[in-house]
Design a binder for these strands. Structure first.
Lengths: 147, 147
DNA sequence: TTCCTTGCAAAGTATTTGCAAGATT
DNA sequence: AATCTTGCAAATACTTTGCAAGGAA
């Protein structure tokens, strides 16, 4: 079952409706590998429907998040914008350079371990973990040594 | 050297000045174990100086963060407010219940490992890692099973 | 005396919401 | 036909900023 099929089903099950706007947003989410925020998604969605509103993008993302179809990501150190990605098996996290703002994605089995640890030790059920790391990227690190 | 002494020194070294307002905020940061956001800090600071402004609290926190004296924390799933804590040896992270909003702090050596892994594999220098986990706390988990 | 810091109010950024019109089932 | 969704504009929440007055070094 593709992401769009899963989404359609979930929306329907929640008593919602499939609209042209939602279709566009789902398509963009499925085909983009980058992490998108509402504004960028809106910008891209307008290529297909120049009347689609930013509010609709926000509402659709919230709907999808509530249905567990997309998860939120924030980038350090700002944490000001919400990025979304479809829920997949391998979760991606992000390192942001404080100096040049470059974002480096990373994967780590440690996060899986952390979830298990929390479920065991705190007796909670984990839905989502957000990890944002910041510091200096290799290049900025090197140039800061020279100074 | 206490947190306040370190802070005074760092502020001075950066060409800044120690003011009554900053003194109050530093004191609150040092003596509170909870995580405070600007508004809560402002509320508490007003007990000692009823004229202190929210803008000053924000500016002071930014100054302290730039100096590496406090670090930011965000709570999932909202990520809307910035909380601060003095930089200490043992870093604390947070789990938030999606249902009852309860926040449970936790510690984990896995985060230290993650930092080391990133420094080794990505060749970056890590300044800060933010981890916010959300899901269901033990109580809400139990009651959701009953439904 | 220099210039950093403050309070105030206004502005800024990201996101949400009320409402009437429009679309889906 | 019923009601969910949309676009628009206004509202909200958190944080930053311009400016003139005040305060630290």
């Amino acid at each position: 079952m593709t992401f769009q099929e899963k989404a359609s089903q979930a929306i329907r099950e929640a008593g919602g409706r499939m609209t042209a706007q939602r279709q566009i947003i789902l398509e963009l989410l499925e085909t983009s590998d980058e992490h998108l925020d509402a504004e960028e998604l809106h910008r891209r969605a307008r290529v297909q429907d120049s009347d689609i509103s930013l509010a609709t993008v926000y509402r659709t993302l919230n709907t999808l998040q509530e249905a567990g179809l997309v998860q939120q990501r924030y980038h350090s150190p700002e944490h000001s914008r919400k990025y979304v990605e479809p829920v997949h098996a391998d979760e991606e996290y992000h390192f942001t350079c404080r100096n040049c703002r470059r974002v480096m994605p990373f994967h780590s089995e440690l996060m899986q371990q952390l979830k298990q640890q929390l479920e065991a030790e705190l007796n909670v059920q984990v839905f989502n973990a957000c990890v944002c790391v910041d510091g200096l990227c290799p290049e900025c690190r090197a140039s800061s040594h020279k100074e």
